[in-house]
């Protein structure tokens, strides 16, 4: 199965970069895997949609801010979960749509979309100060998440 893994976030904005750090680690472990592409990006829905075209499966790894969420705890979500968090389907950023809106658009346009979207979301709290290191709790989650994703594939 042709799989794309995307680590999302900003690697110099503290815990916002956790997805990218996971992608770095996965790349070291899976350097020669033929069916697997590992990328990092800081991108919204349309950009992700465009990146995902032609793949059977996409795994996204990103930071998430939740009220009361313990830093470093991660969960496995699907597109429906993301849609439930964002009931109005408005756009995510100044220059992009939410992922669910983009995927819906891709479906309507008959694009060659992945059959499966897996989203790993890591709880974070520190995303407003520039730093190329993760906080301790989030950093400890990285190897666990890498193992979990490898088992998942």
């Amino acid at each position: 199965m042709k799989t794309l893994i995307v680590g999302l976030g900003n690697p110099i904005l503290s815990d916002d970069g956790v997805g990218v750090k996971v992608a770095y680690c996965l790349r070291k472990r899976l350097l020669t895997h033929p069916d697997l592409t590992i990328k990092e990006a800081s991108a919204g829905g349309l950009r992700l949609l465009e990146m995902a075209l032609g793949y059977d499966r996409v795994v996204l790894v990103d930071a998430i801010c939740r009220k009361g969420g313990l830093p470093g705890v991660f969960s496995r979500l699907c597109l429906k979960d993301i849609a439930a968090m964002a009931p109005t389907q408005n756009l995510a950023s100044a220059h992009d749509t939410s992922l669910t809106t983009a995927v819906e658009m891709g479906k309507r346009m008959g694009l060659d979309l992945p059959h499966e979207w897996i989203i790993y979301a890591v709880n974070v709290t520190h995303i407003d100060a520039f730093d190329d290191r993760l906080t301790a709790a989030v950093s400890r989650a990285v190897p666990r998440l890498v193992d979990t994703i490898l088992k998942d594939l």
């Binding site: 916002d16 930071a63 998430i64 968090m85 964002a86 995510a92 950023s93 992922l99 407003d128």
Partner: peptide, 10 residues
């Protein structure tokens, strides 16, 4: 900044 999930700023 970049973004964090759910990819929507409310």
């Amino acid at each position: 900044a970049t973004h964090s999930l759910p990819g929507q700023t409310p």
